[in-house]
Amino acid sequence: MKHHTLSRTADRLYWLGRYLERAESTARMINSHTNLIIDLPARLPHGWQPLLDMTDSHPSFSSRNQPPSERNVVRHLTTNRDNPGSLANSLDFARENARTVRENMPRVSFEYINDLYLYARTGLSGALSRSRRNTVLDGVLTRVQQIDGFLSRSMLHNDAWSFLRLGQFIERGDMTTRIIGVAAATPLAGKGPAEPYQQLQWRSVLRSLHAMQSYRVSVQEPVSQPLALDFLLKNPDLPRSLAYSLDSIRNSLRRLPRNEQPLRACNRARRNLKQADVGSLEGAELLSFIDMCQLQLAELHDFMGRTYFHPRLRVPKAGPRGRDGPHQGIAKC
């Protein structure tokens, strides 16, 4: 009996991958932003607002009519149930998706996912205090990584695995470009006395993508916007770069049936990235390039849905076959 992946299962695994990745990114972003704020002198008007931009959580935040203070923003991004993108919700959704597809993963993986969920349910509010924030959010990071490591070492690298990875890397590409977009749209300062802080800002971006050390090793120059952009978007060896995400998406798609459309979309995005001289982009140009990357990821996401999750299928008509007739097999649409 060949194991078949249900469309619904593929959908859930894809979202499990997305939510776990989203939780990890969010935790890391909050940590590195906190770090940045500690480094900045109080006179610089750079508050907690950018965190809301990076996680796209404006609508749910402003509906509550509150100032973007540290406590409010961090609460919104961690424990707030009204924010669909909060850590608490991401982990809830991850667990709920895992729960409905647990038979597709090694049994212990649900234990780990459940453990992360329980950790979040009891511990996340600790992130509101600056002194405990780092530890609490690190707890999320290490647990996500434990799940990730466990799955990659013990799960069959079959279709189910491909969908998990696709969710993970589409989300990661989206997050990486979003973080870069926010940094580009809200520069700490232009010229003048704030100059050193621009470096600080890109260092923070690198850190939020867990790429500071890698940058030092592979770029070997002081941090600057053009070099950081090139590194974070185009370096094929950096696990959180856009290039790496697109390559991983392509590798996963190649193993799936009926992959023509999504694969074409992925290749198109990869080609655009390759041809762009991202280091030279600034201001509005940079923003519109980032927008294009995000649109291409969104298109890829749509193709996943149309191809695998909610395809339109042709249902077989009455035929002459009897009980022991040949297997109907696959009906292509």
């Binding site: 078949h4 619904r8 009926r258 077989p316 696959i330």
Partner: peptide, 23 residues
């Protein structure tokens, strides 16, 4: 779940998978 299955006019049961319909 019920929504994963479909019965064709050929009176056979199929499930919706990423490959298409499987009996």
């Amino acid at each position: 779940q019920g929504s994963d299955l479909i019965v064709g006019n050929d009176d056979r049961v199929y499930m919706r998978t990423i490959e298409g319909l499987i009996q």
